[in-house]
Each structure stands twice: as structure tokens, then as C-alpha cells.
């Protein structure tokens, strides 16, 4: 019931508003119950549009000229600062890595040097030992040779006496066997 009345009012009001000239449109009059449904009341469109244009233009200008550049600058500053700090941290890390690498290289170098030194010492000692052994061996072989020579001499000497001993033995044997005779003849 009420809605139909309201709707009828809307249509009459709309006709009224379009028919009425600008001097007594209902803009200044408070909207009362039973008048046109306010969002569809064309008489208020003009003022709303004008104020929308004014306020939105002001908003756009203020936002694009002041607010957004400022916030953007704040965010950029922060990003630059964070990036700078990250870069510094990265540089420090690289420096640390380089120091570690240098330390390791030096350590390896020292190790190699000590190894070489040890090797050299070992070689020296070995050479020393070898020389000593050689001299001892030479000494020994000389002594062996001397001893062999002596043995050889003794042997030759002994062999020189063999004929004599054999003659004596034969003489003795002949004497034993014959009881007489001369050993000198027998031989």
C-alpha cells in the first residue's frame, strides 16, 4: 500500500522536477517523507556532481602532488637503506671469505714447506748413513780380502809341504811293509 503510494510519488515528482524550471527546484527544500526516492531525485544531481568534481579534483591533486610522492619517497628511502645494508653485509662476507682463503693458502704453503724440510733432512740423514755404511763395507771387504789373502798364503804354504809329508808317509809305510828299504828309492 505504502510502497505503491511512494512509487506514484516518485513518478509524479520526477515529472514535476523535469517540468519545473531551475528557480524553484527542490534542492533547498529538505527531503520529506513521500517525496521522490532521494537517490533518484534528479533535482539534487547538479549540486552533487558539482561538489563531486570539486572535491575529487582536490583529492586527486593533493594525492598526486603531495601524499603519494611523499610516501613513495619514504618507501624508496627505506628500500635504498635496506639494499645498502645488505650490500655492506655482502661485502663484509666476501672480505671474510677472502681472509679465510688466504689463511688456508698460507697454511697449505707452510705445510708444504715443512714437508719439504722434513724430506730434505731425511735425505741428508740417509746420505750420511749410506756414506758411513759404504766406508764400513769398504773397510770390511778390505779386511776380508786381506784375510783371504792370508788364508791363500797359508794354504799355498801348506800345499808346499804336501809332497814332503807324502814322501815321509810313503817311507814310513814302506818301512812298515818291508821293514827295510829306502823311502827315497820308492818315491
Amino acid at each position: 500500500m505504502e510502497t505503491t503510494i511512494a512509487q506514484a510519488d516518485i513518478s509524479t515528482e520526477a515529472e514535476h522536477a523535469t517540468g519545473a524550471d531551475a528557480t524553484h527546484s527542490s534542492t533547498g527544500v529538505p527531503a520529506e517523507h513521500g517525496e521522490a526516492f532521494p537517490p533518484f531525485d534528479p533535482s539534487t544531481f547538479g549540486t552533487q556532481l558539482i561538489w563531486l568534481v570539486i572535491t575529487f579534483a582536490a583529492l586527486y591533486v593533493a594525492i598526486s602532488r603531495l601524499a603519494l610522492p611523499r610516501i613513495g619517497a619514504i618507501l624508496d628511502d627505506r628500500k635504498a637503506r635496506i639494499d645498502g645494508d645488505l650490500n655492506a653485509a655482502d661485502a663484509s662476507r666476501q672480505k671474510t671469505d677472502a681472509a679465510i682463503a688466504a689463511y688456508e693458502a698460507e697454511l697449505a704453503d707452510a705445510r708444504a714447506k715443512s714437508h719439504a724440510l722434513a724430506e730434505e733432512t731425511r735425505q741428508g740423514i740417509k746420505a750420511d748413513i749410506d756414506a758411513k755404511r759404504q766406508s764400513v763395507e769398504a773397510d770390511l771387504s778390505k779386511k776380508v780380502a786381506e784375510a783371504e789373502a792370508r788364508i791363500q798364503a797359508t794354504k799355498t804354504e801348506a800345499l808346499g809341504h804336501v809332497g814332503e809329508i807324502a814322501a815321509d808317509t810313503v817311507e814310513a809305510l814302506v818301512q812298515q811293509l818291508t821293514g827295510t828299504g829306502s823311502a827315497k828309492e820308492a818315491s
Binding site: A22, A31, T44, T47, Q48
Partner: peptide
């Protein structure tokens, strides 16, 4: 939703509650 004029600056330029 009613629009009421607050400062009547003219018919279509009126400063309303919406403004």
C-alpha cells in the same frame, strides 16, 4: 538518503549534507 541544503549558494551549487 535525503539531501538537505545547508548553505544555499544557489540552486544547483547548494552546499548540501552530501557536499
Amino acid at each position: 538518503f535525503g539531501i538537505t541544503s545547508m548553505v544555499p549558494l544557489g540552486d544547483s551549487f547548494a552546499f548540501t549534507n552530501s557536499s
